[in-house]
Design a protein around this nucleic acid. Structure first.
Length: 721
DNA sequence: TAATCCTTTCTTTTT
DNA sequence: GAAAGGATTA
């Protein structure tokens, strides 16, 4: 027996690993060695059961988890596993679609729309159906359509259940949206699950092929599967499957995306699965674990499970109260600084509820010269210049894609505006191909000769680059593209901060080069689909010597662990989030989210909040999260604050912030101000004018120091008489 | 049509 | 405080 595989496991874990046949449900609590079980089980199947790697389908929730799993198993068995079925649901679906594109009447190189693309398509449709964007928010409609698709509800089925005028619109848009996706030869995220599902359901030959391929199935984070995913699993599993699912109802934090915890119960019943609970926690100190238990115990309908640990004692959890969010950030970074004698940068993580909260911590880290990395938060790939380039690539790969076409048609400037675009659209709607229209095969009425010429150029560029897509490395492909359209001079000439934007484009090329390093022989087509499924930026490169502080949302933190964890911005309205307090279910999910955050910590846990925070560019007051009450036990928690006295002076402080002078006048223009005028600003409070010009003024505020105010701030300013 | 300036809206979480 | 959308001017 191979020692490396079984000996590092406890009894329960070992049982889960050697139970290879039939249906198995592993209820894996936080930090109970779940990843270890999955990887060792995979290795056990290979080594002891002599199963071939590609006969095992292993589904994880994130690309990151998939990559990590591959690496770990490779280490266990001693050979490379880069081409096995260890994938996310979405990338599994994508693989099936690529392998069967012709059956679906799609080209092999179809594109995948991310949410921005889908939203652009929906905006288009709304316009054409004459619905005003103001009344029908494209995002809201996309959300609705996505959740319908995630619930495996098609247009026709939904149509039967429409009772509101909003849903009425949704039906119409949904129907058109599906048609357009097809016409554009594109799939959206949800399609990556439901289209393969439909394909396998309607095509027995294909179904049998995959059933025969995947003799063993493993699915991680089962509590986060949605209806469509579970349907897909049941379909490929067949009647008597060897299937192992791993989940933890306490860590279900994606129900807003259609995830159903009850898939776990249903699985257990349907397949009469053997259940193995993993309750011993190897990660955290008993103090941290006890606090976590206190948070989650308040939820009634959980599956019975109580985590325990041998790791007695530990540091108390420190809860810090700050005046302002700025001060909170300072304290967090100070604390990190002080702990550097014991820990490395990489041992620290800062968790927050919303991506927008990262900024203030980044500023502080930058200021202190502490290396850090922000995970997730699609910032980089949602930058205009990056999206432009990606849209170019998408359009070149797939010239039926109207959404990408519309994005790039006037980049660089070709003199194509609303009018010309409408003319192109008309031809396109009649069924002519965009490439033919561009190259002048059909006449565009009353369009300037120069414009026609540059359209023709674009058509030629696309044709030329298409011929390279298989033969050239992704980075070179992009370099040629950038050269051909002379993107650099376009950016620098016409865009604000052109230089900076060009640096971002160079950064993109760098990241593609890194990507090539990890995935030899990848083409530009591979790159673009990988990047679409992976937009949360990282993990393309292997960060060998990662030594930095990690910043991420709590959602992104799931599955990870750090010696020292900071949970920041722990105020009512953020966690629990203000938009999730209406129902018990929503509140419970917020509670579980807090639980997930706590259980990431191995040795030390710090929780912080502030009395005021910048929100929408205004200072707002806030209260500590109600979840904090649940762990406020003296044995577990130590409460601290930077100025010991202010707790007793809370009211004074609040008055300071809120104090609004009585005698004030609004002003029409900055001309009415002179140096020395006392003013009140709705965000910054009181201050004295130091400098006046026509469009800006500089003001020295008593609480915020010197601030420069642009013209549009004028409505926020009043003069104190 | 393009560029600029100003106003409005927005933030939950992500494959 | 950013980003997108809208209005205004060239």
């Amino acid at each position: 027996m191979d020692d490396k595989i079984l000996s590092p496991l406890n009894d329960k874990q070992r049982e889960a690993v050697v139970t290879t046949d039939g249906a198995l449900l592993v209820l894996a609590g936080a930090g109970s060695g779940k990843t270890r079980v999955i990887t060792h089980r995979f290795a056990y199947l290979l080594r002891e059961k002599k199963i071939r790697p590609y006969n095992i389908l292993s589904v994880t929730f994130t690309n990151k988890a998939a990559n990590e799993m591959k690496e770990r198993i490779s280490k266990l068995v001693g050979y490379d596993l880069s081409n096995v079925w260890i994938r996310t649901f979405h990338s599994t679906g994508l693989m099936i679609l690529r392998q069967n594109a012709e059956l679906l009447d799609y080209p092999k190189d179809f594109v995948v729309y991310d949410d921005t693309d889908s939203k652009a398509l929906i905006t288009n449709i709304l316009k054409e159906l004459n619905y005003s964007k103001d009344r029908f928010n494209p995002s809201a409609i996309l959300n609705k359509i996505s959740s319908l698709k995630d619930d495996n509800i098609g247009v026709d089925e939904f149509r039967k259940n429409v009772y509101s005028s909003f849903d009425d619109v949704v039906v119409k848009v949904y129907e058109e949206y599906e048609k357009r996706l097809k016409k554009n030869k594109a799939f959206d995220f949800s399609d990556l699950i439901i289209v393969p599902y439909k394909l396998l359901k309607e095509n027995e030959k294909v179904l049998i092929k995959y059933r025969e391929l995947w003799n063993y199935i493993m699915i991680d984070e089962f509590q986060d599967t949605n209806v469509a995913q579970y349907e897909f699993v049941k379909l490929i599993a067949g009647t008597d499957p060897n299937i192992c699912v791993v989940g933890d109802d306490d860590q279900s934090i994606y129900s807003w995306r259609g995830a159903r915890v009850r898939n776990i119960y249903d699985f257990k019943e349907k397949y009469n699965a053997k259940v193995i609970p993993l309750e011993q926690n190897y990660r955290s100190t008993s103090i941290i674990l006890e606090a976590a238990n206190m948070v989650v115990e308040k939820i009634f309908d959980r599956m019975e499970k109580k985590l325990w640990t041998d790791n007695k004692g530990g540091e108390k959890i420190k809860v810090f109260e700050a005046f302002t969010d700025k001060e909170e950030a300072k304290w967090v970074i100070d604390t990190i600084d002080n702990l550097l004698v014991k820990y490395d940068y990489k041992d620290f993580a800062i968790f927050y509820r919303t991506n927008a909260q990262s900024r203030i911590f980044e500023e502080e880290l930058l200021y202190r010269n502490i290396p850090y990395k922000v995970f997730g938060g699609q910032k980089f790939y949602s930058r205009k210049e990056i999206k432009d380039i990606l849209a170019y690539i998408k359009f070149i790969i797939n010239p039926d894609d109207w959404v990408s076409f519309e994005r790039i048609i006037d980049i660089p400037k070709r003199g194509v505006g609303e009018a010309t675009l409408t003319k192109i659209r008309r031809l396109y709607d009649e069924g002519f191909s965009l490439l033919d229209i561009l190259t002048g095969k059909y006449e565009l009425d009353r369009v300037n000769k120069n414009v026609l010429d540059s359209l023709k150029d674009l058509g030629e560029i696309v044709k030329e680059l298409t011929s390279y897509k298989e033969s050239i490395s992704p980075a070179n492909f992009v370099k040629i593209l950038l050269d051909t359209i002379d993107y650099k001079s376009y950016l620098i000439k016409t865009e604000e901060n052109g230089e900076e934007r060009w640096e971002n484009v160079e950064e993109l090329i760098n990241s593609i080069t890194v990507y090539e390093g990890t995935k030899k022989e990848a083409t530009i087509v591979d790159y673009i689909s990988d990047i679409t499924l992976q937009s949360s930026s990282d993990e393309i490169g292997n960060d060998e010597e990662r030594n930095y502080v990690s910043l991420m949302t709590i959602h992104n933190a799931k599955g990870l662990e750090f010696p020292v964890v900071f949970i920041v911005g722990t105020v009512e309205g953020l966690i629990p989030h203000s938009s999730a307090t209406e129902s018990v279910e929503e509140m419970n999910e917020e509670r579980r989210l807090f639980y997930v955050a706590i259980t990431r910590a191995k040795e030390r846990l710090y929780i912080s909040y502030s009395q005021t925070r910048m929100n929408y560019g205004e200072v707002r007051e806030c209260n500590p999260s109600s979840f904090l009450k649940d762990i406020s036990k003296d044995e577990l928690v130590e409460h601290i604050s930077s100025r010991g006295s202010y707790k007793n002076n809370k009211n004074v402080y609040k008055e300071d912030v809120k104090k609004i002078p009585k005698n004030m006048n609004s002003i029409e223009s900055y001309n009415e101000l002179t140096t020395g005028t006392k003013i009140y600003h709705s965000s910054f409070g009181e201050g004295e004018v130091k400098f006046v010009s026509e469009n800006i003024i500089k003001v020295n505020f008593s609480d915020f120091g010197i601030q420069m105010l642009a013209k549009n701030e004028i409505s926020k300013i009043k003069v104190i008489r």
